[in-house]
Design a protein around this nucleic acid. Structure first.
Length: 280
DNA sequence: ATACGCCCCTGGTGGC
DNA sequence: TGCCACCAGGGGCGTA
């Protein structure tokens, strides 16, 4: 589920709740999720103060006063939700990790499918973690330019759709925002990545930046599982041009005779949505 | 090095 | 109503 805008939104919510707070209790409710939880996770969290947060691609990093950082990935169905401690509600199903702060807040990591993950790493070595080391540029930073993207795509024989899902090309894009960015840039998802460098990359980079920025401003996109740390759903799902809109008219060329509207195809086992008239 | 399946897991939905 | 096949915001890993 969560792509860059959703992770950013969750992270901002957690930061508002947890920054400066001391964790007084932590508990794991199973051995792990995607991988086993790191040894001593709960013991490390208990007593630590939360110093701050950052995001790298679809990962969140929660910096602790112990000199360690908690690396969190939400997978497909992960959510991190805060509620007052002792709230008179039963714990939600699939809550695998919980934190409680001295200030009386309870934060749970809920993930039915368990594709999410948690690791504990030295803060000074965050970026050399095996899951972060090979990651491409942050798309919303200035360093993500048409020149950089062109270099990353040059010579690639894979469709641009698949190339943009590759986190080593650019960090944080997933199925929704790749579809939306390619639509905005007027580029067919089937086009080989190696044909993008140059003018098409010059259109694609601002399209990626714009769609991600707008989605963050809307609080992300909620299809099923995703909620913000506050429990609110996102708002960007109402603004999709193509994603999950098979058969609907394209917003840029509504109802021309014989136009099938938004088309769905399967690439690398995943749905792609696009307008075959506009995207070439 | 690059590209492509397979697999991890649960839950919701739509068809029969 | 019930059962079942299919699909879902991800991505690591093994294999060609």
């Amino acid at each position: 589920m969560p792509e860059l805008p959703e992770v950013e939104t969750v992270m901002r919510g957690l930061a508002a709740i947890l920054e400066g707070q001391t964790i007084i209790h932590a508990e794991t409710r199973r051995e792990g999720m995607r991988w086993p939880f790191p040894a001593g996770l709960a013991a490390t969290l208990a007593g630590a103060r939360v110093e701050g947060f950052r995001r790298r691609g679809k990962y969140m990093l929660m910096r602790l006063s112990t000199g360690q950082s908690v690396l969190i990935h939400l997978g497909m169905s992960g959510r991190m939700v805060a509620r007052p401690r002792g709230a008179n509600t039963p714990p939600p199903a699939h809550e695998h990790l919980i934190l409680e702060t001295a200030g009386g807040t309870h934060v749970g990591f809920v993930d039915p499918r368990r594709f999410g993950s948690v690791d504990l790493i030295p803060t000074a070595a965050e970026d050399s973690h095996r899951l972060l080391a090979g990651m491409g540029p942050e798309p919303l930073e200035e360093g993500f330019t048409p020149t950089i993207l062109s270099a990353a795509l040059a010579g690639k024989q894979t469709p641009i759709k698949a190339a943009l899902l590759d986190q080593s090309v650019v960090a944080g894009l997933g199925n929704i925002y790749v579809c939306e960015a390619l639509f905005r840039a007027g580029i067919s998802p089937r086009r080989l990545a190696g044909t993008i460098p140059g003018a098409r990359a010059t259109r694609l980079v601002p399209a990626i930046k714009a769609v991600l920025s707008e989605a963050i401003a809307a609080g992300g996109s909620t299809l099923r599982d995703y909620v913000q740390a506050s429990g609110e759903i996102g708002g960007f799902q109402d603004r999709f041009a193509v994603y999950d809109r098979e058969g609907e008219p394209c917003p840029l060329c509504p109802n021309p005779p014989g136009c099938p509207g938004i088309t769905r195809i399967v690439q690398a086992g995943r749905s792609t949505f696009f307008c075959a008239r506009i995207q070439r």
